[in-house]
């Protein structure tokens, strides 16, 4: 059975990856699952300098999902290289760095720094974080900015580059087209949807930052539609995500046009989710006689 997939220059031994911000830098999960099973690990969003993040309360459960406003708390790119890479590189899984900046120059600088670290197989440019005041989603909702950031990171990084899109746009095809023409290897679809929740006892928003990113099963139909639309209109490989919790969900994303998938929120409520989904995908292929995962995608 062939499970290996290619997102442009990025070769993964299987299509199951874990989404940025839901798996830390792998250390905690290594206590529960064998990281060697994963196609790749998207680490927590990195910034040039360490970032403190937003004040709590940062998360809350909502119907079939959750809201988060972490504010990109992370160790910073230097500590990632010094302290986290040595751990991650012990495993036979792709190390994938999610990068964040306030300015285009910051994205470039992080890309340049990580280009020197051969263990980092790909960059995922996060142009869609809804929880920081600058950068993030402000770049991601403007196709010219998407093009600019992607092409400038592309020039600084010699291995694979993915750009992660926000669902908060009227024309997702224009965004994906901008990513493609900027020379990226793939698009990651989708980041969280912006939402909110109120505490009716305190009569205030639950989250200290008022709004947060909605993730989990609640967003799955929206994500599938966006993957499908890009797949139908733009010639670029897709890393699909948004609410995947079972192998059946993963199959849906592949059918919609994803070459590979990411498991996000499901890692929180079922720490074995990624491993179970990989096994379920294999069972599905066996059941329907597929020899190669790439045959599954609708043409």
């Amino acid at each position: 059975m062939n499970l290996s997939v290619e997102l442009g220059r990025l070769k993964l031994k299987n299509p199951v990856t874990v989404a940025s911000g839901t798996f830390g830098y792998g250390e905690e999960f290594s206590q529960l699952i064998d990281l060697n099973e994963l196609g790749g690990i998207f680490v927590k969003g990195l910034t040039l300098k360490p970032k403190k993040g937003n004040p709590p309360q940062r998360i809350v459960e909502t119907p079939s999902g959750m809201l988060n406003s972490i504010g990109l708390q992370n160790v910073g790119v230097e500590a990632f290289i010094q302290k986290k890479i040595p751990f991650l590189k012990k495993y036979n899984t792709a190390i994938l760095a999610n990068i964040n900046g306030v300015t285009v120059e910051e994205y470039e600088e992080i890309a340049e720094r990580l280009n020197a670290i051969p263990e980092v197989a790909a960059l995922e440019i996060n142009l869609s974080c809804p929880n920081v005041k600058e950068g993030g989603i402000h770049f991601g909702t403007n196709p010219d900015k998407v093009y600019e950031v992607t092409s400038r990171v592309r020039k600084k990084f010699s291995r694979a580059v993915l750009t992660k899109l926000s669902p908060h746009v009227t024309d997702i095809v224009a965004m994906a087209e901008a990513v493609r023409s900027a020379g990226a290897d793939a698009v990651s679809v989708i980041n969280t949807l912006i939402g909110m929740a109120f505490d009716i006892d305190r009569r205030k928003p639950v989250l200290k930052s008022i709004t947060g990113g909605l993730s989990g099963p609640a967003i799955k139909p929206v994500a599938l539609r966006l993957v499908y639309e890009i797949h139908s209109k733009v010639n670029i490989p897709i890393l699909g995500m948004g609410g995947i919790s079972t192998a059946e969900d993963a199959v849906e994303f592949i059918l919609a046009g994803s070459t590979a998938i990411s498991i996000g929120t499901a890692n929180f409520y079922d720490p074995l989710a990624a491993v179970k989904i990989l096994k379920g995908l294999k069972d599905y292929m066996k059941k329907f006689g597929f020899k190669n995962i790439n045959e599954l995608k609708l043409k």
Partner: peptide, 10 residues
């Protein structure tokens, strides 16, 4: 969120 140290929610 996770209890494991990965979501940075708590």
């Amino acid at each position: 969120g996770c209890g494991l140290g990965t979501c940075m929610g708590c």
